[in-house]
Design a protein around this nucleic acid. Structure first.
Lengths: 163, 163
DNA sequence: ATAGATGCAAATATTTTGCCGCCAG
DNA sequence: CTGGCGGCAAAATATTTGCATCTAT
């Protein structure tokens, strides 16, 4: 799956985005005020084909509606974080020290990044769920969030480097 | 283990630090110049009882030798990163958006943080190794680094919150 | 009507860079 | 001796905050 001989631009996200307006619906159902600016930002995030940082979200939002302010992007991201509607990622700082965001799906997944071409794939595994359960058992704790980022060299790039 | 009725200050690291001068030896063996400032910074990192960010490393270094400059801390951290002698962590941004550093041990481990008291424990597991192997097989890739950070409520804190 | 959002400017925070004099090997 | 290193200042980047105004509900 997703192993097409496909020349990814740096940072490309492999899995499909969700253009269904999920985030907007989620805020609406919580009775949170939907402003023009928020709708634009949510639309950008829902339809992103890769993980975006605050600056990229701003750029895309302003292409749709130039009257979206940088500060509003940050405040909207905070809002979404508070409601656990998005996850904040670092992607191993491959692209710098800013943060990346993705709307929080139903399942936890691992981000797998190629250090050479920058492709980021998502990976789900029963082993990962078992690992979290093991932590809960061993520490007698309740796990509520987890983040795993893995870096290495993808099949395509291994052909091009002496590893 | 490590479930002492022990009032951890926020950010406390549970596992024991390594005061053996491991980092200094590692640089020496690579023929890298050891300056007075580097020795101090390495000493601070080797003997840290918790994960430190750049600012805290600077503070502690200046307590030992006031002539250590902030920029030198950043440059030394870069040096250590390049040589894979330290790992850069985010600890789920529990304490802010800066980065934390720890000297790279022989084994990968997971950082398990309590969202209430801030304690950070380290966890090793065969499941984690299996998970990375599964990723290598499924994606035909070579995994060279990984980071897992888990957040939740520790046994002690679960007694104090309604969860 | 009004609680809550936005825009703007400025403040913070963190990290990086250019340049030059200095010191470890 | 000399090439890498550290100090300093300034820039670059990223994010947050105070406050006045506006708007979704």
């Amino acid at each position: 799956m997703a192993t097409s001989p496909h020349r990814a631009s740096t940072g490309e996200r492999i899995n499909a985005p969700d253009a269904s307006g999920k985030l907007e619906k989620a805020l609406e159902s919580r009775g949170i005020r939907l402003t023009r600016q928020r709708r634009v930002i949510l639309q950008v995030m829902d339809s992103a084909e890769r993980h975006l940082d605050a600056g990229s979200i701003l750029e895309r939002a302003q292409r749709i509606d130039p009257g979206v302010h940088r500060v509003t992007v940050y405040r909207t991201l905070d809002l979404l974080k508070k409601h656990s509607l998005i996850d904040e990622l670092d992607l191993l700082h491959l692209r710098g020290d800013q943060h990346y965001y993705e709307s929080h799906g139903p399942r936890d997944h691992i981000h797998v990044a190629c250090l050479r071409c920058g492709k980021v794939r998502e990976f789900e595994s029963r082993l990962y769920e078992q690992l979290k359960q093991q932590i809960e058992r061993d520490f007698h704790m309740k796990v509520t969030l987890s983040r795993t980022e893995v870096g290495g060299y993808c099949a395509e790039c291994l052909k091009h480097v002496g590893l």
